[in-house]
Amino acid sequence: MNRIEVLRQYIDEILLNMTDVEERRCAYLHLYGVAQSCALIALKRGENAELATMAGMLHDIYSYAKMDTKDHAHKGSILARDILTSLNVTNEHETKMICDAIYSHSDKVLAHSNFDEVLKDADVLQHCLYNPLFEIKPHEKDRYEKLKSEFGIVDFKYWRMEQYD
C-alpha cells in the first residue's frame, strides 16, 4: 500500500470516531479537499505532490481530533510529526517539510518556503471553492485572487450571471 493510503486509513480512523456527524462531514470535505488542492498546486509548481497531499490531509487534524482550534497549526504540526513517526511513512527530511508547512499554514500574510505556500494556497482554495457564493474572508482575498490568476479561474459569480442573462 502506498504512503498516502496508509495515512488515509489512519486519518479515516480519527474521523470515524468523531461523534458530531456535521463536524465529521466538514472534516472529510476539508482535509481531503485541501489534500487534492495540494496535489494540483504542487504539480503545477513543480513541488512534491505526494508530500503536499500528505500535508493537506494532516494540516487540520489537530482541530478535528481534539475538537480544539486554538493554536491548531502549531499543535497540529506536533501531532502530525507523531502520526508520521508512528506510521513510519516518511523520513526525517520529509516529516520536517510536512510539519513545517502545517506549522505555518495559518499565517496567510507572510510567505514561507515554496512547499509551505502550496499548503496555504490549497487551504484558501478549498475555503473559497467549497461554496463559490460565500463571501471570501478578508485575510484570504489576496491569495485567492493570485490563485485565480495562476489557474485562469473566471470569477464564478460573473459566470453564473452570464449563464442567466
Score class of each variant (00 low, 15 high):
residue 105 H to L: 08
residue 139 H to I: 10
residue 112 H to D: 06
residue 136 I to W: 09
residue 127 H to I: 15
residue 93 H to L: 13
residue 90 T to D: 02
residue 141 K to L: 14
residue 151 F to T: 00
residue 131 N to E: 11
residue 100 D to H: 03
residue 122 A to R: 04
residue 123 D to Y: 03
residue 115 F to M: 02
residue 98 I to L: 00
residue 116 D to M: 07
residue 147 L to T: 08
residue 148 K to H: 08
residue 150 E to D: 04
residue 93 H to R: 15
residue 135 E to N: 04
residue 132 P to K: 12
residue 86 S to R: 14
residue 156 F to I: 15
residue 101 A to F: 00
residue 113 S to F: 03
residue 118 V to P: 03
residue 99 C to K: 05
residue 102 I to G: 08
residue 128 C to R: 05
residue 93 H to Y: 14
residue 105 H to G: 09
residue 148 K to N: 12
residue 136 I to N: 08
residue 87 L to R: 13
residue 118 V to Y: 03
residue 150 E to K: 05
residue 133 L to S: 14
residue 103 Y to C: 02
residue 133 L to E: 14
residue 138 P to R: 09
residue 118 V to T: 00
residue 132 P to N: 10
residue 96 K to S: 06
residue 130 Y to C: 14
residue 108 K to E: 06
residue 91 N to W: 07
residue 140 E to M: 02
residue 155 D to G: 13
residue 142 D to Q: 04
residue 96 K to L: 01
residue 131 N to Y: 03
residue 100 D to N: 11
residue 130 Y to H: 14
residue 121 D to Q: 04
residue 148 K to E: 13
residue 96 K to G: 05
residue 101 A to H: 05
residue 94 E to G: 06
residue 118 V to A: 04
residue 101 A to E: 02
residue 156 F to T: 15
residue 125 L to V: 12
residue 103 Y to H: 11
residue 98 I to Y: 06
residue 105 H to M: 06
residue 89 V to T: 10
residue 127 H to C: 15
residue 97 M to L: 15
residue 107 D to C: 08
residue 90 T to N: 10
residue 151 F to W: 03
residue 143 R to Q: 05
residue 135 E to W: 01
residue 98 I to M: 07
residue 113 S to R: 11
residue 145 E to W: 05
residue 99 C to N: 00
residue 136 I to F: 01
residue 125 L to P: 11
residue 146 K to T: 01
residue 127 H to R: 11
residue 152 G to N: 00
residue 142 D to A: 13
residue 102 I to V: 03
residue 134 F to S: 14
residue 153 I to F: 13
residue 93 H to C: 12
residue 130 Y to N: 14
residue 132 P to D: 05
residue 124 V to S: 03
residue 87 L to F: 12
residue 131 N to Q: 04
residue 115 F to Y: 06
residue 120 K to C: 07
residue 121 D to V: 03
residue 152 G to S: 02
residue 134 F to C: 13
residue 126 Q to M: 13
residue 154 V to T: 07
residue 127 H to Q: 14
residue 141 K to G: 09
residue 126 Q to Y: 10
residue 151 F to E: 03
residue 89 V to R: 01
residue 120 K to T: 05
residue 150 E to W: 04
residue 150 E to C: 01
residue 92 E to G: 10
residue 136 I to H: 02
residue 116 D to P: 00
residue 108 K to A: 09
residue 156 F to N: 09
residue 131 N to K: 10
residue 85 T to M: 02
residue 144 Y to N: 05
residue 119 L to M: 03
residue 123 D to P: 06
residue 108 K to P: 10
residue 109 V to D: 12
residue 132 P to L: 09
residue 88 N to G: 08
residue 86 S to H: 13
residue 142 D to R: 10
residue 105 H to P: 06
residue 92 E to D: 12
residue 142 D to Y: 09
residue 94 E to H: 04
residue 96 K to H: 04
residue 113 S to G: 13
residue 149 S to L: 13
residue 150 E to H: 07
residue 144 Y to M: 13
residue 144 Y to A: 03
residue 119 L to P: 11
residue 87 L to I: 12
residue 102 I to R: 00
residue 102 I to A: 02
residue 97 M to N: 07
residue 110 L to D: 01
residue 147 L to M: 12
residue 154 V to P: 02
residue 105 H to I: 08
residue 86 S to I: 11
residue 116 D to G: 11
